[in-house]
Design a protein around this nucleic acid. Sequence first.
DNA 1: CTGTTAGCGCTTTCAA
DNA 2: TTGAAAGCGCTAACAG
Lengths: 381, 381
Amino acid sequence: MIRCKKCGEVGYIKKSGKVRGRQRYYCKDCKVYFSEEQEDKSPVAHQHQVTITDLARHLNLSASTVSRALHKHPDINLATQKKVLDLAARLDYQPNMLASSLVKSKSFTIGIVVPEFINSFFPNVILGAEEVLAKAGYKLVICHSNESYEREVENVKLLLSSRVDGFLISLTQETKKYDHLKAIVAKGIPLVLYNRICTEVDVPKVTVNDYEGAFKATEHLILNGYRKVAHIAGPQTLQIAQSRITGYKDALKKYEIPVNEDWIRHCDLSFEGAKRTAAYLFDLENSPDAIFAMNDTIAVEVIQLAKMRGISIPAQLAVVGFSDDIIAQFIGLTTMAQPVREIGKAAARLVLQRLKNRDVHIESKILSTSLVIRSSSSHNH
Amino acid sequence: MIRCKKCGEVGYIKKSGKVRGRQRYYCKDCKVYFSEEQEDKSPVAHQHQVTITDLARHLNLSASTVSRALHKHPDINLATQKKVLDLAARLDYQPNMLASSLVKSKSFTIGIVVPEFINSFFPNVILGAEEVLAKAGYKLVICHSNESYEREVENVKLLLSSRVDGFLISLTQETKKYDHLKAIVAKGIPLVLYNRICTEVDVPKVTVNDYEGAFKATEHLILNGYRKVAHIAGPQTLQIAQSRITGYKDALKKYEIPVNEDWIRHCDLSFEGAKRTAAYLFDLENSPDAIFAMNDTIAVEVIQLAKMRGISIPAQLAVVGFSDDIIAQFIGLTTMAQPVREIGKAAARLVLQRLKNRDVHIESKILSTSLVIRSSSSHNH
DNA sequence: CTGTTAGCGCTTTCAA
DNA sequence: TTGAAAGCGCTAACAG
């Protein structure tokens, strides 16, 4: 015999009152539904996690009051607030973000898409972004596309479904279509591209000065006496690969060294691709005496292969990479360092700005690089 | 003059009918609320993302029918289904996971906590876990604690709030209290510990055979003629550090080499810590001729410092690491390889199992290691 | 086969 | 200072 909490009347069983298998009762007088569980006041979270209504029931308060207490709303009796907070702590109440995000249409979550996890680059970008976002009360949801266009699109869909408040994206080497990005923009959700950007969508971007970096890296080799400088470039789809090629070419031009197209090799960002490309250059009749590689992973593979073939570095071959990955210092690789963590921070700051003010145009950010000289290109190191 | 969609009666303005600032109207006859927007049938997503009710309105269907169509429920007219699917595609409808997870009390999300991102270890664990989870229709939410106990606790709270269906956790080197883990278990949420585990909570665990790995690594050094084998251990809090110490000691005992406690140095998992500890061992009056390091990062630092000091490897000093991090092959580091990706996969499989059947006891998984011999410990490599 | 209804857990007016 | 009511977007039981 279940009785109404309010008036004590015996509950009326409504046929349509069954919800999710559980019979609920209805009070004709109070016009309110209630269930058996409502009688149970033992403060033990059982199957489901503790909810705001559980707290309310135990304290004979309304859900709204509990909500206000939890948020330390000014219009609340401090004694009530304390009661609620104490019980919440005792029962290890964790607010249901799904529910609150749903009503507020805001998840306080930013989605980041990274194309790979092999180098230390993206983990560090994540670290930087997280630092800035956490301070602003945002969480970061990490997705990685594994260099696959399809997965990138899936990731975007997933994050869209999770109703993230903003996007931080670095494209895969395969990405040639940008409809998924345009869809984000069309929905009015802040998007920032970083590192692997594209020009097809008009959003704020974070990059380093790739052109200048490549220029200086190449120049460094030339100034160290190397004249036959080759370049292992990244996939043609990548904007940054293009910029670095131009930087490389312009450096050669500055010193009036003719560009040998045979010495510019595109290569995907896998270990095997790098090894293959290095082998190609080594096997050339007229082989280069220096290689500027698109990134450190490739540069390291070059050095590995050179060692295996007994080519001495830097005497017979100089190598320069790009990024200053952790591995570079162990190998003694000269490289163009990027402020990796700063890239993440800058990207995070830009989405945050966008989130604050959706209308104002936001400038892209170009960070600068700096050459770190090590033994792979210089006898003095 | 707003009219009821159903009966055409003029809408009745109820004072309490204002929701979120927007005036809604009420039809006394049909007992239904409606708002001005309901008149607007232009199929253009504006501020908010397209919802199931948007689709329903445009097609003059009910939300449930649309829901059924989207899920390809069998009880649906195929023509209707097609209409819905087409419109959904046209408007780039993305289901609101917040809402569906809320009603289903299930998010199809697993939370993973990693302590660091410096080595390639955790990224690879993530890759493995994701692979298995994706196949089962689950997403992975990545959190990292940055080796901070506080952040670990925060991460758990966050994931709890996000209502993840399960947890994959690897502890920080600081973690000595386990209440946050016990809370997860108390709530009945599946939890699997991996790599950095603890014995204080009774949940399935995924590890490698650390004892045996350490034993064999040490044995390898002994068999190669090194008698003064030191060990740089991890933080004392870590279970795996303890197991590896025991393995190391037992190997020495097997060959009747006395254990020199001065040669067992604990060290935190930072670059600086590693360097300091290496320096300590080198500076010892009676310094070791071989070092078995807790992980590859430490081993690499040892080699770096040895090179700087002109100590030749492996002639004067042999080094063995643990993990077979990417860096090991570049440096030529002998190391005890762990099936890293497999650890992630195994952990994922265990949560999934737990999710399927909450009551059955699930066995922990111990994967095996294998020695990869390179030049840091052997002249033939 | 489709619509109605109730509710997931939370926030937010408005009324008391 | 508190409570009642409505609704965020979606699903599911039930009725037609």
